[in-house]
Design a protein around this nucleic acid. Structure first.
Lengths: 203, 203
DNA sequence: GACTAAATATGACGGTGTCAAGATTGATTA
DNA sequence: TAATCAATCTTGACACCGTCATATTTAGTC
């Protein structure tokens, strides 16, 4: 007689996380433009304004979803980079492939994470920034190591930050072009990634 | 007594191009989310549904704006690539810089041109595709030349398409990260671009 | 058991895209 | 010139949307 969430209770109990979960599902199903607060509330079985007691805004809810996305991405990078078996070169290749495949697997989430909606002006929540920045910084750290091991093609003074911005730009750009289906076919993801790896490695 | 568009005429005369122009202005001023058909119509001085006789959709209007964007971009690339003075290396560098600076100068237009809104599903107009594809193909052609001149760092079999997708991904990614203000500062555009050029050139 | 604060609900407002139906006009044709 | 017609524009209406102000219900606390 413990878990009986069947009867319609006035207080939902854990509306915040439920909203985040269901919103994530809706995002996956129908994209960002199918995600409205009203539909979300209806699906959860709650009034339209109930979410406003857990999220200041629609924007805040979106930030919440993106937040978990960044944590996923961060963890993925960490796991990959700290793997025992593969060589550094292989890890570099893994980073490129995994990043792009993450975007390919969760196109709408990725779009949300890096879209204008969330980041423009001062729209981003401080919690979002707290989740995203460590993720960014980890990419710089990885790049620094690749640089120190003389893996990356480059002449002149090295900068981990700049190299990271370029590398990140590349995977980000490939991901977005893929997602939006602009002159790049999803069928060739691996080929494109391999080619990118080859262009960055020193020969 | 020729140009007297002062008196309120029932027929506007050239509403289609006026809509495109003014919509472009509004896009530049307040971004995509400030651009509503109703506001646009009001600003042009016409009823809310008048635009529907010139554009099937709001989407069709957006495609129209993006269209001119692609023509601009295409022309910019052509002019730069066919310049007489600079060396091939310098032209390669110019391409990177100019592309990113185009995006930086017209952030909302760029966002629209490559955003999901326009390209997802079958949203894109055939006219838009007719303007965009030649632009894409020109990038492949440029890349092919750079490859043949052994400018780009790479081992293994060469593919102009793949290299172009990676290069384009890079500039696209840098542009988007800059526009969205994600871990990259607009003040460092040139530095980042220079670094990208250096990473791609063979040494 | 009374009180308070949190959680939820209802009603309302202004905004959006877009459809249907009517009004106006410029061009064509007889 | 007069009549017709299609293009163009307007008005009205609808279904959404996010969000605020206000009222209601409930859980937890003293």
């Amino acid at each position: 007689m413990k878990n009986i969430p069947e009867k319609s209770k006035y207080h939902h109990g854990d509306l915040r996380t439920t909203l985040l979960t269901v919103a994530g599902e809706m995002l996956k199903e129908g994209g960002i433009e199918e995600l409205s607060l009203r539909k979300l509330a209806a699906r959860v079985g709650v009034s339209r304004t109930a979410p406003y007691h857990h999220f200041k805004d629609k924007n805040a809810l979106l930030c919440g979803i993106a937040e978990s996305g960044f944590r996923q991405l961060h963890q993925m990078n960490k796991r990959s980079f700290n793997a025992e078996g593969p060589s550094t070169k292989e890890k570099f290749s893994s980073f490129i492939h995994e990043y792009v495949n993450f975007a390919k697997a969760n196109p709408d989430l990725y779009e949300l994470m890096f879209g204008r909606t969330i980041w423009k002006q001062e729209n981003s929540t401080s919690e979002l920034r707290d989740a995203a920045y460590p993720c960014f910084q980890y990419q710089v750290a990885m790049t620094r190591e690749w640089q120190q091991l003389k893996l990356l093609n480059h002449s002149g003074e090295e900068s981990a930050l700049r190299a990271s911005q370029v590398l990140w730009g590349t995977v980000h750009g490939i991901a977005k072009l893929l997602i939006d289906g602009i002159y790049t076919d999803v069928a060739h993801v691996e080929e494109i990634c391999d080619y990118a790896v080859d262009m960055f490695l020193v020969h």
